[in-house]
Design a protein around this nucleic acid. Sequence first.
DNA 1: GTCTATATATGGATAGAC
DNA 2: GTCTATCCATATATAGAC
Lengths: 210, 210
Amino acid sequence: MKSDKHIGADKREAILDVAENLFADFGFEAVSIRQLAKEADINVAMVSYYFGSKEQLYKAVIERKMINTTGFVASNPNMSHWEKLETIGDNFVDAFFSRRKFQQIIFREMALNQRTEITDILVNHMQNNFRNVSGIIRDGIEKGVFRKVDVELTVMTMIGITKTFSNNSQLACHIMKEASADDMFSDKYRRRLKLHVKDFFRSHLKPDAI
Amino acid sequence: MKSDKHIGADKREAILDVAENLFADFGFEAVSIRQLAKEADINVAMVSYYFGSKEQLYKAVIERKMINTTGFVASNPNMSHWEKLETIGDNFVDAFFSRRKFQQIIFREMALNQRTEITDILVNHMQNNFRNVSGIIRDGIEKGVFRKVDVELTVMTMIGITKTFSNNSQLACHIMKEASADDMFSDKYRRRLKLHVKDFFRSHLKPDAI
DNA sequence: GTCTATATATGGATAGAC
DNA sequence: GTCTATCCATATATAGAC
C-alpha cells in the first residue's frame, strides 16, 4: 500500500479534510500548523510540501468545494416557477447540511471586511447563484405568478434562514432545546427547515397574500 | 485638561471604540495589540494597564453593549400582536444598523464552535430576546390573530434577514449594485429592510395566507 | 499614568538528513 | 516523501524608569 501511486493524493485529501474542520471551528488565524499536523497525524513540514503555505492550504480548502448548483434548475424549461424555487430551496438546505463546515468557512470569510483574492472569488460565486434565483422571482412577478415583492431581500431571506440556522447552531440548539449543536444537523431538522423555506416562499409570493 | 479626573475613563472608552472596530473587521486573533495601540494612538502597555490582557479587552468590548431591548415591547399591554412584532422588527434593524460592528463581533463569536464563557453569555442573552418574540407569536396563534407557523424558525428568519444583510455587507453591496459595503448602511437601506421585515411578518402570519 | 526595554512564547517556514 | 532541528518573525505581557 505504501507504494501506491495515489498515496500522495489521499494524504492531500486527508489534510484538506482536517483543515476544513479546524478552520470552520476556530477560524484561520486561530489554527496553527502544529495543531493541524497533530490532528491530521502528519508532520508539520507536510503542509509546506503539499500546499506551499498555510494560506495556500486555506485557499485549497475553499476552492475544492466551490461548485455552481442553481444554474441547472433555473434554466430547466419543464419546471414551473414554484417548482424551481422549491427545488432550489431544498438544494440550498441540503448544501448547508451536508457541507456545513465548508459553508461556515466561506460565510465567515465573507463577513470579514477585508477585500482579498478569496473574498472576491467567493462573492462572485455567491452572486451567480443569487442572480439565478432572483431571475426566477423577477420573471414570476412579471408573469403574474408571484406577488410584487422586494426581490433582492427575498432571496437574501432564503439565504439568511438557512445560514442563521447552520452557522449559529449553538444558538439554534438552545432555541430548539436540544442537547448539543450536532443534533441540529439531523434529518428531522433538515426536513423542518425545508418545510419552512417552502412555506416562506408560498406565503410571501402568493399573488393575493396582502 | 490633562489633569481632568475623567481622562482615564475617556481613554478607556477610546480604546474600546478602536478595539470594537478592529475586532469586527479582522477577528480577535488577527488583531495584534501593536496594531490596536497604533490606531488608538496609545502605548502598547496601556492595554495591560486598563484591561489586564487582550482577552479581557475583548470581553470588555462585548459586555459594554449588551442590553435587553425586546422585554419592554413584549410586555406592553397597549399594543396589538401586530404592533409588537412590527416594533420589534424595526428595533432589530435599528440595532444592527447603529451598532453593526458590535453585532458583527457577537455573531462571529457565536458562529465559532467553541463553548467559552463569552459564547455562553451571548447565547443566553440572545435566547432572552428570542423568547420574548416567540412568546408574542405563540400567543397570537393561540388567539387566532396569526396563522399556525413554525414559531422558532419564524423568529430565526427575522434574525436571519437582518443579520445576513448586515454581516455580509460585502455580498449585499454586490447584489444591490452599490459601490462600497458602507453604502449598505444608509437610511435608504434601513427603510427598505424594515419594510421587508414587516412585509415578511404580514404575509407569513396572516391567518388565511395559505 | 505613561513610556522603553525586555522576557518569553509561539507560530510559519525551510534546510538538510534519511 | 518524510522527518528533525532550527531560523526568524511576531506576538503577549510586564518590569522598572520617569
